[in-house]
Design a protein around this nucleic acid. Sequence first.
DNA 1: GTGAAAGCGCTAACAC
DNA 2: GTGTTAGCGCTTTCAC
Lengths: 347, 347
Amino acid sequence: MKNNNKPLTLKKVAEILNCSTATISNAFNRPDQLSAALREKILTECKRIGYHGPNLTARSLRKGESGVIAVLLTDSLAYHFTDPVANQLLQGISEVLEKNNKQLLMLSSATNAQQTSGIEALPDGFIVYGSQDHNPLFERVVQQGKPIITIDFDIDEYPSVNIDNQQAAFDIANHVLEKKPESPAILGLRLIHSDRVCRITDDELFDENESISRRRLDGYLKAAEQHNYQIKSNRIWHVPKNTYELAKQAAHEALTSHPLPDCLICMSDNIASAALNIAREMNIRVPEQLKIVGFDDIPEASRLSPPLTTICQKSREKGKTAALKLIQGKLQDKTILPSQLVIRSSS
Amino acid sequence: MKNNNKPLTLKKVAEILNCSTATISNAFNRPDQLSAALREKILTECKRIGYHGPNLTARSLRKGESGVIAVLLTDSLAYHFTDPVANQLLQGISEVLEKNNKQLLMLSSATNAQQTSGIEALPDGFIVYGSQDHNPLFERVVQQGKPIITIDFDIDEYPSVNIDNQQAAFDIANHVLEKKPESPAILGLRLIHSDRVCRITDDELFDENESISRRRLDGYLKAAEQHNYQIKSNRIWHVPKNTYELAKQAAHEALTSHPLPDCLICMSDNIASAALNIAREMNIRVPEQLKIVGFDDIPEASRLSPPLTTICQKSREKGKTAALKLIQGKLQDKTILPSQLVIRSSS
DNA sequence: GTGAAAGCGCTAACAC
DNA sequence: GTGTTAGCGCTTTCAC
């Protein structure tokens, strides 16, 4: 089974089959350039002698296209494999790519940027997930002049796929604040730049920017205002990444703080799930003593006990939409995908 | 920000900087071939004019290496993003790759094999996850004559990373059968080739092969024998893929079958998790009325209520080990990673 | 329908 | 230390 010979080249194949390289190439790429019979014969011969078609590197160098689509991720790849939301997104993307015979290359902005591998020259297009302020890899991607589509953030010149984060956050906060909790708290995600779980400060509460988390926080605060709550900055926790461990830490801090929150508005289902577990450990009954709501609607959300009230943001759909737009070359518009409040028994 | 110019080439850069292409190339690839000062100057100039280093396609064609490592997956990519075990494995792999400045390319054997993109020529090495009998893409991969390492299955000529599935399965079955359940049942994974959830037949019970599931089933049956159980084939369910939906279906069938099982030995934590949920819906108390054990020790296992007794197989470690061996060129041996029984309260 | 040949962008051997 | 050049494997134009 093992093989130590060099793979055949088109040129050698042409020699063996005793015709020109152009004919072999045409057999693989342009059926109209030769008779069906000859093409068939060549293809069968190739299979027999073990030539499986032109080498990607060479073809791509020549044609300037590779059939590879890259997903540019903000954090490390390893992190993205742990994040259920990223997982769903990648699932949607790969569904579309597979259907269209495209290969998926995962590129991480967190990669050691010194060692420039030049990999950004390979893909025919890029799906950029998550904001990229002054990321060197992203800048090299832009330089390629290839199609780019962004997800969960926006750059004027490029098409994008987003949801209305502020509205969605408003909806879910509105829903839970209608129950008149006494001391609601917020477990936010990536609110500030610290890599520690911590509370935010008053300044930060009013710090305007374009991030998703800011949009969501705005939605929460708007709902709070309408219900005459004033949520102070020290009732808002910052979780630096959407990992279970950090979420647990934040949930634990919140549920051991004074006054004890009776309502946790979480910026991700992961955080909400951790909060649910901490509450169970502490024998706090959900939803009677504590209401918990999440965001995302990851698959786990409906299986938790109690199942989680959340915002369904169809991450898989997001990925599919972005991949499809990229492949079909529909590169004009900005898409806002619908999201909706899903009420389950955690609230 | 948007860019429509063609990226600079090394040749153009050489013209602009008024030196030869070799010098530019050397500045990027072989620091020893020119003075540090000149190199520094070239690199800064390049950055200024927007040349970010040699194009991967060309370099790879020339050098025969790309810095890309491929993971060859049995099922569709989309499926692998949903499977928590695959996720952990990929996490481990990408940790190592990122540390070593390698790019990750995910290749699916399930891809439309007609349209041969030639992509298999690009990677410098392959991590093959899961058995590949007569898969055309795998055969093309073999043809490349590049390093290959297999995970969770074995081919004589290639190094591999595995666990002792039979022993692990024996251990966990032994543990739960010691509790003397009256009617144990097995929820297996990929036992046969059907894509339906179904029970297996007597013939299939004795059908020898090299698969993981066969190894695990052997372990279960050996433990059963030692405890004087005779588990009949109609007490063994086949789950075709490790998805939650299929697992739920199998668990539901098992828990509505007669005699009602009071012990479910599940071949994955996913299946066990679904069984746990079905049991809760049916008001069957775990572990009092029903013992459930899993396999894998996915992150969710310890968070379920009750937490799951399972086999910890360190999938992340598996991925790391495989990637590391591939990168370091340690291509001799077969590695068997340790796994262990983790007893929690579901049994 | 077919073949000869240029050249995609780069690296490395070799000459200077 | 630097420059010239062949050629990695392929596609495509152009001449036949």
